Simulated scan of single mutants.
Amino acid sequence: MIELHKAGYSYGQDAILRDVSLQLAPGSFHFLTGPSGAGKSTLLKLCYGDLLANTGTVKLLGQDARDLSRDALAKVRQRIGVVHQDCQFLDHLSITQNVALPLAVSGRDVEAEAENLAQLLAWVGLSPRAHALPPELSGGERQRAALARAIIMGPDVILADEPTGNVDWEMSQRLLSLLVELNKMGKTVLIATHDLGLIRAAKAQVSARVLRLAGGSVQLAGADL
């Protein structure tokens, strides 16, 4: 689904990533761990075309990211759902409207998708909050809304950047269960996190590959996790 081959990225003279080679196969589940500032968010941005590698190649759904036009990249991104760490919403729109934004942007009939949208909100446990505004939500509710928005287009790949970083352990487990369920539906999942407890909990539920990012390179983590 996504393939990096000796990919590197630098901010000015500072090399954040060096010679990163990584394959996200269909239906696979990966964790990306490493210390703060190691480049986890940068790597995720390469994986959905928000950044272009300075060196090496990045293929998104079989296409070289460098060769994608703006329209082609937009189509590719419809198949890659992203749960951002900061969970930004439009505060004047309800949660239902915020979750439905990708449908509207892509030109799909939001009213025709109303039933699917309602089912999705129920799946993430937000039906009672469907008409609430983002400032009225708790941290866990915002994260679940962010997940719903990321998958509203039915993507093949879900990338989550520290999705449990601002919630308690119980909510972390709930979010993890949703992501595991998506993986069991055949979705490819990559979660960037520094929470080793979350990784250990996931390995009891799903066959997860754990990658460690350090010194700008990615390596397969040991069995001690």
Rank of each mutant, 00 (worst) to 15 (best):
A201S: 13
V82D: 13
D50V: 11
L24T: 13
P128A: 05
E181F: 00
I80N: 00
P155I: 14
E115L: 12
S94E: 10
T193A: 06
D71E: 15
L17W: 00
D161K: 02
N183A: 14
S10M: 08
I152Y: 09
T188C: 03
T193R: 06
A74H: 02
M1Y: 04
Q78G: 13
A114V: 02
T193N: 04
Q143D: 13
L32M: 06
L22V: 12
P134Y: 01
G107L: 06
T96Y: 07
T55M: 03
A214Q: 15
K187L: 12
S28T: 08
G216Q: 07
L52Q: 14
F29G: 10
R174T: 15
G165F: 03
A145K: 12
G125F: 12
G39P: 05
D168A: 06
A223W: 04
P128T: 04
A160C: 02
L198E: 06
H131V: 11
L159F: 02
I16M: 11
S138K: 10
R144V: 09
Q219P: 00
G139N: 05
R209H: 06
A122C: 05
D14T: 13
D50G: 06
G186D: 09
I158C: 09
L220M: 11
P35D: 06
V167M: 05
L117D: 11
V189G: 06
